[in-house]
Design a protein around this nucleic acid. Structure first.
Length: 573
DNA sequence: GCCGTTTTCGGCCCGACTGTTTTCAGTCG
């Protein structure tokens, strides 16, 4: 099995932790962390790039040395340097560093003075009062350490955007009622519309910060107050989600919003550009020498460094600065561009609502079309349709369509891709449909080669149109199955097939990076909700978020097209 | 360890809060 980008990133991150504990050059440490971030979020698999003999040092933050190290990891699965560092500084120290509040210096002291080798050792030392006696530590630090170790796990699941919305919305309303508050906005990865968020970053503008700070920590959902200052406070809510609140004066709103929206990598890059122009950017504004020259709006901040406004979804330092410089930022797709939904279920299989109810709900959203794609017969638990039942459904839809005036129901199916790459229903019935959505629902554990071949073979069927949820992943629940997505996309582009971006907040499959890959490979995307009830149809916005993060424009999305244009796209020649 | 319209050396984003010290190091975002 090829080495995954995440594994390479983990190696670099562990190495960075251990080197930091060893007091290595901080910029060298940073270089490993930057590389870890780059590799983790890179569209392409390093293994593939190595196999294709691509020059990895062309990738930003990856130089000659790191390119060589990536190659070593891909080929051998290991990095000799890490093995060497581990022999003098045990791996466990990297784990302790992921306890909040404990960085390289404290971990180093714990290791050197108390000879700790495991998390249990740390617990024992803290319980017996040995920690508080160390220089730089104290009673309070010891207590905090024990508390944090109690709830500690190295795998901290991130919160899905839809859950974060539900938690954030009442808190925002609560803060808006504080005296003297002008604006309350959620920044951070939430504003960048990442599929999951690690915490909530809320920015408030107010004349006096103390009122809103007081009110914030009194919020009934607050479980623990981590820190409380005059301009910044951090709490953990009972839901487990941590919230940072930052209060700035109105005049700093734009600069603070840029700062608090991130990403960190974007901010660093932006500030570097500013430094070159002899400017300084912080959360209060843009400064030339000592005088403040911008910062009230985000636009003004970008303008001082000669850039147009960059949409939050693009702020990942993934080429947005390069594009902005050349006036090449994409005109991102928006919800308004969507004319219909191409993947929905009805009561006939595992949906909860009737076809007619689904159609009416869609027309209320202003859609021109909605397709019904129930499961095919192999999915017995979902009461999947066989040929006979599908024929009946086609007739039913014809009847409903005859009565509906402002929306057209498209006849379709979510047909299973069987293990050998054949489809679960015969061509004789598939050809009666407007189009098909094809999906893998079983045998997730095939090898990468076999899984890829399975899908490629399915695509050879002339009635194959859209590959549904292409990797099968469920956020925080199920890893994607192993496939060569690029190969599949290249083939889809050539064969006039399409990739689904499943907008279900549990799936969001394609990922943002995969959307970029779709654009690069030239395959068009269908953003579909996979709604199993009328309420699911409103999840389209999550798909739009993801597509925007993937730099997609309306022209890259097939369900921004008119029905006539769409039907033409589905006729493979 | 990376990087370059100050290019092969000498820089590397910037500020807030906490706890332990007594002026600041460590950590975080």
């Amino acid at each position: 099995m090829p080495v995954h980008n995440n594994e390479i990133a983990d190696i670099f991150e562990t190495l960075a932790d251990l080197l930091e504990i060893e007091d290595a050059n901080p910029y060298r440490v940073r270089a490993y962390r930057n590389a870890a971030r780059t590799v983790r979020s890179h569209t392409r698999s390093m293994s593939d790039l190595v196999e294709q003999k691509k020059d990895l040092s062309k990738i930003p933050t990856i130089g000659k040395d790191l390119a060589k190290k990536i190659k070593t990891i891909v080929v051998t699965g290991k990095l000799p340097l890490l093995e060497k560092v581990r022999s003098r500084t045990p791996n466990i120290l990297s784990d302790i560093m992921s306890v909040k509040g404990f960085g390289p210096k404290r971990v180093k002291t714990l290791y050197q003075k108390l000879k700790i080798q495991s998390l249990d050792d740390v617990r024992r030392a803290a319980r017996s009062g040995k920690v508080r006696k160390l220089k730089g530590f104290g009673k309070k630090t010891e207590k905090t350490l024990l508390q944090r170790l109690e709830h500690f796990s190295t795998e901290t699941a991130r919160t899905r955007l839809i859950t974060a919305e539900k938690i954030a919305s009442p808190l925002v309303n609560y803060l808006k009622k504080s005296k003297g508050v002008k604006k309350v906005v959620i920044a951070g990865s939430y504003r960048r519309c990442k599929e999951t968020v690690g915490d909530l970053d809320i920015l408030v503008t107010a004349q006096k910060s103390s009122n809103v700070m007081k009110r914030f920590i009194k919020y009934e959902e607050v479980d623990t107050v981590i820190s409380k200052g005059s301009t910044r406070s951090t709490v953990i809510l009972r839901s487990g989600l941590s919230v940072d609140l930052r209060v700035v004066p109105q005049i700093s709103y734009g600069a603070a919003l840029v700062y608090f929206t991130g990403s960190k990598a974007h901010n660093i890059a932006l500030r570097k550009i500013a430094v070159k122009k002899h400017l300084k950017i912080n959360e209060y504004g843009v400064y030339k020498n000592k005088s403040r020259i911008a910062g009230k709006t985000e636009k003004s901040v970008y303008k001082t460094v000669g850039l147009p406004f960059i949409p939050p979804e693009l702020r990942e330092n993934h080429g947005e600065f390069f594009a902005a410089h050349r006036d090449g930022l994409p005109d991102l797709v928006s919800l308004d561009n969507i004319r219909g939904d191409l993947h929905c279920h009805s009561k006939a299989s595992d949906g909860r609502d009737t076809i007619k109810k689904m159609a009416i709900a869609a027309s209320e959203l202003g859609y021109e079309y909605l397709s019904i794609n129930d499961h095919s017969k192999r999915i017995t638990v979902a009461h999947g349709l066989n040929k006979k039942r599908l024929l009946e459904q086609i007739k039913t839809i014809d009847k409903i369509n005859a009565k509906l005036s402002n929306i057209v129901i498209l006849k379709s199916i979510e047909v299973d891709i069987l293990e050998d790459g054949s489809l679960d229903l015969p061509d004789s019935i598939l050809k009666e449909l407007d189009f098909t959505v094809c999906a893998v629902h079983h045998k997730f554990d095939l090898s990468r080669t076999k899984q890829t071949e399975r899908i490629l073979r399915a695509m050879d069927n002339p009635y194959f149109n859209i590959l549904a949820h292409p990797t099968g992943r469920l956020i925080n629940k199920r890893e994607p199955y192993q496939i060569d997505l690029e190969k599949i996309m290249l083939s889809a582009a050539e064969q006039q097939c399409f990739m689904e971006l499943n907008a279900n907040p549990d799936r969001l499959d394609l990922t943002d990076d995969a959307c970029m890959m779709a654009k690069d490979t030239g395959v068009k995307v269908a953003i579909s909700t996979d709604a199993h009830s009328i309420s699911g149809i409103s999840h389209m916005r999550f798909g739009i978020n993801q597509a925007r993060r993937g730099w997609l424009q309306a022209e890259d999305i097939i369900n921004t097209r008119s029905l006539k244009a769409l039907k033409k796209l589905f006729r493979r020649s």
